[in-house]
Design a protein around this nucleic acid. Structure first.
Lengths: 217, 217
DNA sequence: TAGATTGTTAATCGATTAACAATC
DNA sequence: TAGATTGTTAATCGATTAACAATC
């Protein structure tokens, strides 16, 4: 627990936890009070030892022969991910993707509530999307400080991303969810989560080209 | 090359290739004809040995003391990713995210052109988004066959995702870019690339909660 | 009790990083 | 030539998987 707290939990484990959560909520809806690691593993195509190790990081303990309590497990995962502790966020770049994220009301169940959006285009400023005002980018830093906002979401073009990140950091933002396809230079205590869509497309496209080579249709 | 072709290139390598590409295009715009692995690594915060190994999978060879030719390297990466060979795609689920992807015209530079969209809601069917018709989901399978579409994009709710995947596969689709937060059951020759946004949010949120614990602001 | 399931320790596997010879 | 950079082989590191004792 001590060394773990220093290095943090492995990223692959963190990325699997929401998968468990989705499945557990189905289990819960179906009214099943307990579930075993083997059962979860079969459903999600994961090794059951891995499921146990992953769940262990949340501090949950199961009962031999029985399994894990569904409700307690859901609570433990949500707590561990910080999803029970909603943090305010600013979004910058109200293009197609930015607007889509603003329209999506389910992130607040995942610890993040977008409270305002910013853009540098005057024609977008002053509008509101799904109840959130679009403000001029110049106000970001000051407002982030005043409202104690710690999360920033970048859905702007790559060219603008570094400048936006700098403004976020000077406003006291500690974690950046970056959808721009660029590597941000930030101090080491700033958390950056890159969500570049081209990355997944690269894997898909290469695998498909290889598959079509082997078995031409 | 032979064993490599069987197992495929490691996913982490494939995921870094678009990063290299973005930076190389900057280099190209700046008019620099050659670039070294060390230079790329410094820019993208990667070990230079890793950069060389990654680039090697594309078949490119550099010149000692000189580096890699920018133009040739860009071409080799794009070829390797299949980004010079555009594949038609169908998108299913025209909600906020689906509409955002339809509005984004840059995927065709990454090997994928969305040629039609599908939805099960009658009020969405018959409209067009950014030039692509929204068709009833019942037509997907037949049309995929007739138009030889091999890529499917799922931007529908999790509950609908498995059914949509089944319809795609029965229509001859070989690769699925899945934005729904669910594990799809598919035959092993079908390529699935999951792009669940909650996954990245889990990493960000947990890291932020841990950071705020250590240094409360 | 016997059987099923957990939790942990050890082995394996794959990716990253280091070392270094080859080359221009 | 000397210095810089590539490409490859070896070492390290971390995550996954296997083995198994503990437990209800």
């Amino acid at each position: 627990m001590t060394a773990e707290a220093l290095k943090g939990v492995p990223e692959p484990t963190l990325r699997r936890l929401p998968q468990y959560l989705h499945y557990l909520i189905e289990i819960q809806k179906a009214g099943r009070p307990v579930v075993s690691a083997g059962h979860i593993g079969r459903e999600l195509h994961l090794d059951q030892t891995q499921v146990r190790k992953d769940l262990a990081v949340t501090g949950i303990v199961g009962r031999p022969k029985v399994g894990y309590e569904t409700d307690a497990l859901i609570g433990a995962i949500r707590d561990f991910l910080g999803w029970n502790n909603t943090k305010d966020a600013f979004l910058v770049g109200v293009g197609h993707l930015g607007a889509a994220l603003l329209g999506h009301d389910r992130f607040d169940k995942c610890g993040v509530r977008i409270v305002a959006a910013f853009d540098k285009h005057p024609q977008r400023v002053g509008t509101a999307i799904n109840g959130r005002d679009v403000l001029p980018i110049e106000k970001l830093s000051d407002l982030a400080h005043r409202l104690h906002v710690h999360v920033g979401i970048i859905t702007a073009p790559a060219e603008a991303a570094q400048t936006i990140a700098d403004q976020m950091i000077s406003g006291g933002i500690r974690a950046i969810w970056n959808f721009a396809p660029t590597t941000l230079d930030v101090p080491e205590d700033i958390i950056v989560q890159n969500e570049d869509l081209y990355t997944g497309l690269a894997v898909l496209s290469n695998r498909l080209v290889e598959a079509l080579k082997t078995v031409p249709s």
